[in-house]
Design a binder for these strands. Structure first.
Lengths: 208, 208
DNA sequence: GTCTATACACTGATAGAC
DNA sequence: GTCTATCAGTGTATAGAC
């Protein structure tokens, strides 16, 4: 094989992502990652010293795809209702395309809660000092104008995240309980859900 | 040790529960379970033939604590709003006491989605034939009376579950992102949340 | 950079004494 | 029923040839 270093490294990372996302850190096997990448086990250690390091690289990569989006929309100068609609729509679509990722993150963070603190301390600071106050201000003004009932911005964000993410990570369970394990029905349900969630959240704060 | 068979078996189950809940099937070690139970590794295999069998026993046990509650409240003859309040309150309290369980279930179901189908096929049938129609009927009547806007009962259930469960399983992440990793703030937030969720869901369907 | 071969540690499981 | 000792298998990691 006449591969450039960069290419092999990426090939490994992609393979590792596939295996780690499905099996998790503990369940994944270096052999399986090597097979998936079409290379040898020893090469994994040549590029990433250990399984732990390889996992770390994958984890950071995965996280980077998802969390910045949370604050992105929140900082825009859209009308609050449009912010909500936009965020729900964007995030839903993002997740429907990569449904295995939220469960993976939750699983791994639960396994090692310490790690998350390190990865996100700077990011959390940004949200605390920019996003939350901006959102709080917007909410306060609207409630003064009698357009909405006042609401804690953290509850608002938590509600949106909950209603978007939970149906994805709980799919195998809820699909059985509420949809007799019918995959098509469940996917259709998910597709309706983005609009339903936007309406629900807006309705809950709107003064009619 | 002069222990009765029953006692040792329960001691093992409790120890296994502790370890499996924290580490998951793949991360758990038989040695650690034995230590936790204060007995020897060989005894684990004497009582439960294999790690897989032991895990299965723990998993079924854990599931049994949580899912029957979902349909219980739904079948009562309470007013819809009271049903919602009651369910949210009960389920929240249940989860706050055992916060590690939802994440565990989701992790393991993701690892082996096939298993869940077997465990819950009969239960899912019951919900499909009794709970959902009953709830749908109640919603239909109230919307005819002009009390609420019509809503798909599955969306309603999904919303409640999402808003209750997600803040628990995502705690390590959200606590860092929105609460600067302050545990006390987060717990306080969770305690307010049950009332917030009830109000929000009711407000979203109520016609004022 | 990439491979084969292998070292080394760990883990689930069993055998056998008490 | 409970223990100690041990086996067999598997997994991460390294050595060394090309």
């Amino acid at each position: 094989m006449v591969e450039l270093k960069q290419d092999t490294e990426n090939k490994i990372l992609e393979a590792a992502k596939i295996v780690f996302l499905q099996k998790g850190m503990d369940g994944a096997r270096m052999q399986e990652i090597a097979d998936e990448a079409g290379i040898n086990k020893a090469l994994l250690h040549y590029y990433f010293r250990s399984k732990e390091k390889l996992f770390e690289a994958v984890f950071k990569d995965v996280l980077g795809d998802f969390f910045p989006k949370i604050s992105e929309v929140m900082l825009s100068d859209l009308h609050l209702f449009d912010k909500i609609k936009h965020f729900v729509k964007e995030y839903s679509n993002l997740l429907y395309g990569k449904p295995y990722i939220p469960g993976f993150i939750i699983m791994e963070v639960n396994r090692n809660p310490q790690a998350i603190t390190n990865y996100f301390s700077s990011y959390a600071e940004k949200i605390a000092k920019a996003n939350l106050p901006a959102l709080a201000k917007q909410i306060l003004e609207m409630s003064k104008n009698g357009e909405i009932r006042p609401v804690d911005p953290r509850h608002l964000i938590m509600s949106m995240l909950s209603m978007i993410v939970f149906p994805i990570i709980s799919k195998p369970i809820v699909k059985v309980i509420l949809f007799q394990n019918n995959d098509e029905d469940y996917n259709q349900f998910l597709q309706q859900r983005a609009d339903y969630v936007s309406d629900m959240i807006i309705n809950s704060i709107k003064i009619k």
